Amino acid sequence: MPPARPLSLVTGASAGIGAAFARALAARGHDLVLTARRRERLDALAAELQQQYGCTATVLAADLADPAAPSALCAELDRRGLAVDWLINNAGYGVPGSFTANDWRTHADSLQVLLTAPVELAWRLLPGMRERGYGRIVNVASLAGHVPGTAGHTLYAPAKAFLIKFSQGLTLESREHGVHVCALCPGFTYSEFHDVTGTRALMNKLPGFMWQSANAVVSEGIAAVERGAAVHVTGRVNRTIKRVFKLMPDRLAFRLSARQGRRYRQAD
């Protein structure tokens, strides 16, 4: 049985899908720990949620590109006596341009945020969930993890594919302990993601039916992890795209993905 007021840790909570998760979970009666780099945004969101829903919203600003951040974050949770019931591994971003167009530090930081931080947070928080017999982990992956890789944003899709496999493995290890793990795989979502990567003008060329709101993505994600789905692709359009690519011969799928990628990737 879940606690009367579950505590949810949301990474990348300052905007987009992370902020939408925070709002949706507060509306469900959760208390929150919000983390991201931009403390002023977190403070504003925490005040909004506390006033609207009467929850407790704790702000712990952190940069998950720092390898020490996950352990420091969990140490602070322990110091405050906060036991996390829901972990929303949402923090992430893409690095535009080709692989060699960026320096190694840029790639290393992105891999730390996309891969190492979510895995470490799960490793540190999962034992407590199992001991209490209840927990939920949502690893925000992407439709990109289900289709062939493209030129540009070279590490993003591989990182998301890793999160999908990681979530499947954790599901098999954890479900008998009352812990559900889900890789949530949205497609194009209205958020700051493409503004940060400088590809907004290119993305605006996509037809409207390709896009989902962050609230819609989050609604599907919460329902999926609650029912025990190890992987969930959001939206009928995205699920259709996944099925089509799965049915194609590998060579054809690769060629199609490469052609589409050239239309919507930023040149060096």
Rank of each mutant, 00 (worst) to 15 (best):
P2L: 05
A15W: 09
F21N: 03
A22L: 06
A24S: 07
A26Q: 01
G29A: 03
L32R: 13
V33R: 10
L34P: 04
E40P: 13
R41K: 03
A44Q: 11
A44E: 10
Q51W: 06
G54R: 00
C55V: 03
T56R: 14
A57L: 02
T58E: 15
T58V: 09
L60C: 04
A61Q: 00
A61G: 00
A62E: 12
L64I: 15
A69G: 00
P70I: 00
A72D: 04
A72K: 09
E76H: 05
G81A: 15
W86I: 05
I88R: 04
Y93S: 10
G94T: 10
V95Y: 01
V95D: 01
G97V: 10
S98Q: 15
F99Y: 10
D103H: 13
D109P: 06
S110T: 15
L115S: 09
A117H: 06
E120Q: 13
L121E: 05
G128P: 02
G128E: 04
M129W: 14
M129V: 04
G133S: 12
Y134Q: 11
I137A: 01
V140W: 08
A141S: 11
A144K: 00
A151N: 11
A159I: 04
K160T: 00
K160G: 02
F162N: 15
S167D: 04
S167A: 10
T171C: 12
E173Q: 10
S174G: 08
S174Q: 05
E176N: 04
E176T: 08
H180Q: 10
A183C: 07
C185G: 10
F188P: 03
F193W: 03
H194F: 15
H194S: 13
D195S: 14
D195L: 08
V196R: 12
G198L: 01
T199V: 08
L202A: 04
M203E: 13
P207C: 01
P207L: 00
W211H: 00
Q212Y: 05
N215V: 06
V218C: 06
V218G: 13
V218W: 07
V218R: 05
I222V: 12
I222R: 11
A224R: 09
A224C: 09
H232K: 13
T234S: 13
V237W: 12
V237K: 13
V237D: 10
R239F: 07
I241P: 09
K242S: 15
R243F: 08
F245G: 10
M248V: 06
R251E: 07
F254A: 11
R255K: 11
R255C: 04
R255N: 12
R259E: 12
R259A: 12
Q266G: 07
Q266A: 02
A267Q: 11
